[in-house]
Computed example of a mutant assay.
Amino acid sequence: MNLSIVAAFAYGILSIIGGIIGYIQATSKVSLLSGSISGLLLIFAAYFQLQGQAWGSILAVLVTAVLVVFFAFRLAKTRKFMPAGLMTILGMLALAVMVHQIVALR
Rank of each mutant, 00 (worst) to 15 (best):
Y47R: 02
V66W: 11
A60Y: 03
A46Q: 02
L40H: 02
A54I: 10
S4H: 01
S31T: 07
S4D: 00
G12A: 13
L3N: 15
G52T: 11
S4V: 00
G56V: 05
L62M: 10
W55L: 09
M92C: 14
F70W: 07
S36W: 05
T88Q: 09
L95M: 07
S31P: 08
R79E: 04
A76P: 06
L32E: 11
L33N: 10
G22C: 05
I16S: 09
L62P: 06
F73Y: 13
L50N: 12
M1S: 12
G22S: 04
I58S: 04
A65E: 00
G52R: 08
G85V: 01
M1P: 08
T27H: 15
A65M: 03
F81N: 04
A60E: 07
R106I: 08
A84W: 11
I16M: 14
T78C: 02
S34F: 09
A10D: 00
W55G: 02
G52F: 04
F71T: 08
S38N: 14
T64W: 00
Y47G: 08
H100V: 07
I43R: 07
I20V: 11
K80W: 01
F81W: 15
A76N: 12
L40G: 12
I102W: 09
Y11E: 14
A96H: 00
T78Y: 04
V66M: 14
L95N: 08
G22T: 04
L90A: 14
K29I: 15
G18W: 08
V103T: 08
M98C: 02
V63T: 15
F71R: 03
A45W: 06
A45V: 04
S28P: 10
F73P: 01
A60V: 09
R74H: 11
L41F: 14
G18K: 13
L33M: 13
L67N: 13
V103W: 12
S15C: 14
A10G: 06
V30L: 14
G12T: 05
R79Q: 09
G18F: 12
L86G: 13
W55M: 09
F71K: 03
T78G: 02
I17D: 05
M1Q: 03
G85I: 00
G56E: 08
L3S: 15
S57R: 13
A45P: 12
Q51S: 10
I13M: 14
F71Q: 10
V99F: 01
A76D: 06
V99G: 01
V103P: 15
G91D: 00
Q25C: 09
A94S: 15
T88M: 10
R79N: 04
G12M: 12
T64Y: 00
L50M: 11
G18E: 01
T78A: 03
A8R: 06
L86Y: 12
K77L: 05
Y47K: 06
Q53M: 10
A84Q: 10
F9C: 12
M82I: 14
A8M: 04
I24G: 05
I16L: 10
